[in-house]
């Protein structure tokens, strides 16, 4: 599920994994429901439609290990144990405690971003910028809001603005995803 407003860009990436069901969440609808504040992230849902592991960072491999300090194998091993042997590493109480519950400001930020995407699609660049700025001010440490809006600002998501955002986020105590699966720091 791509948390992304740029369908053409998603299409290029999705071509590498034709065996997967790829969905597009341009307006962060599912991101909002499941508390996704950064990517890549995984949520586990069991056969009864229950969340058995809440949103948490889940790297596909170790290419960002030096930067993110996450050992991707930790989540992979947990996932394998759940899929193959039905073993869970968290009980319901721990799942509930680690759900990324939103603040009122984050909900408003997400709504401003939805308005921005619609105005952007209509060609109202100024209106889109106004609402993106409101979203960013309300949720300054949310990666899908801040970094995810950089392409709409014509900013490089690996450029100067990104690294100053990371600095800001670290100074705020690296908020988001309390489970910290595989974190090495």
């Amino acid at each position: 599920m791509a948390i992304d407003s740029d369908v053409a860009a998603i299409r290029e990436w999705a071509a590498h994994a034709p065996e997967l069901t790829v969905l597009v969440d341009r307006e962060y609808i599912v991101a909002e429901r499941y508390g996704i504040v950064n990517v890549p992230a995984a949520v586990w849902i069991d056969e009864d439609g229950r969340i058995v592991r809440p949103a948490d960072t889940a790297m596909g491999d170790d290419r960002f290990r030096a930067f993110a300090h996450i050992d991707s194998a930790v989540h992979h091993d947990l996932l394998r144990a759940w899929v193959l042997r039905n073993e869970r590493d968290l009980d319901d109480e721990q799942v509930a405690a680690n759900m990324e519950r939103p603040s009122p400001e984050l909900q408003l930020a997400r709504l401003h971003r939805r308005v921005a995407v619609l105005l952007h699609d209509r060609g109202d660049t100024e209106g889109a910028s106004t609402h993106l700025a409101a979203a960013e001010a309300l949720a300054p440490h949310d990666w899908v809001i801040r970094r995810g809006s950089m392409p709409m600002h014509d900013q490089d998501p690996f450029g100067t603005e990104f690294f100053s955002f990371v600095e800001e986020w670290m100074q705020a105590g690296s908020p988001g995803y309390s489970l910290r699966t595989g974190r090495e720091d």
């Binding site: 791509a2 948390i3 992304d4 599912v30 992230a41 995984a42 949520v43």
Partner: peptide, 13 residues
Amino acid sequence: NRRKVLLLAWSSW
């Protein structure tokens, strides 16, 4: 329905 689902959030950015 009745299957395990891994909901994986990713992006191009």
